[in-house]
Simulated assay, not measured.
Amino acid sequence: MNIVCNVLALLIVFGAIYLSYSTKILKDPEVDHPLYGKIEMYSFARTQGLWWTTLIGACFVIGFGANGEVINLNATCLVLLSIGVGTTAIGGIIDTPKDDDNATDGVIPQNIFKKRIPHFFRDILSDSTGITVYRYQALIFNLIFSIVFLVEFLENISNSKMEFPVFEKETLGLMGISAATYLGMKANEK
Rank of each mutant, 00 (worst) to 15 (best):
G65H: 02
A75Q: 04
R46P: 04
T23V: 10
E189I: 07
F141S: 10
V13H: 09
I25S: 12
P29D: 09
L73W: 12
L80C: 02
F164C: 07
K115S: 13
Y21C: 08
D101W: 14
I131M: 12
D95C: 09
E163L: 12
V133C: 05
T87S: 10
E69D: 13
V151N: 03
I157Q: 05
R122A: 08
R122G: 07
A103E: 09
K114W: 00
M1D: 15
I144G: 01
I25F: 11
I124N: 02
I93P: 00
F64Q: 07
Y42C: 09
P109H: 11
V79I: 15
N142I: 03
L78D: 08
G84Q: 04
E152D: 14
V31F: 13
F64L: 13
W51C: 04
G63L: 02
I144N: 01
G49E: 06
A16G: 03
L81Y: 06
I94D: 01
I108F: 04
I90D: 03
G63N: 00
F141D: 08
E168P: 00
K161V: 07
K186G: 01
L19I: 11
N102G: 03
D101C: 04
L11K: 03
L78I: 13
Y18N: 10
T181F: 07
Y18F: 15
F141C: 05
K186Y: 10
C59W: 00
P165R: 12
L35R: 09
K115C: 07
T171Q: 08
M41L: 14
M1K: 04
Q137W: 10
F164S: 07
F153L: 08
V107C: 02
G15T: 12
G106D: 01
N156G: 06
L78M: 14
S128L: 09
I56V: 14
M175W: 04
T88W: 15
V107F: 02
S22M: 10
I3Y: 06
L143M: 13
G92P: 02
T54E: 04
E155H: 09
G106V: 05
T181Q: 01
F164A: 09
I39Y: 05
I112C: 06
I147R: 00
P109N: 08
V70L: 11
F153H: 02
D105E: 06
Y18V: 14
D95Y: 12
T132S: 11
G91Y: 07
Q137A: 15
N2I: 13
D105G: 04
F44H: 06
K169C: 06
E163I: 10
K190C: 09
Q110W: 05
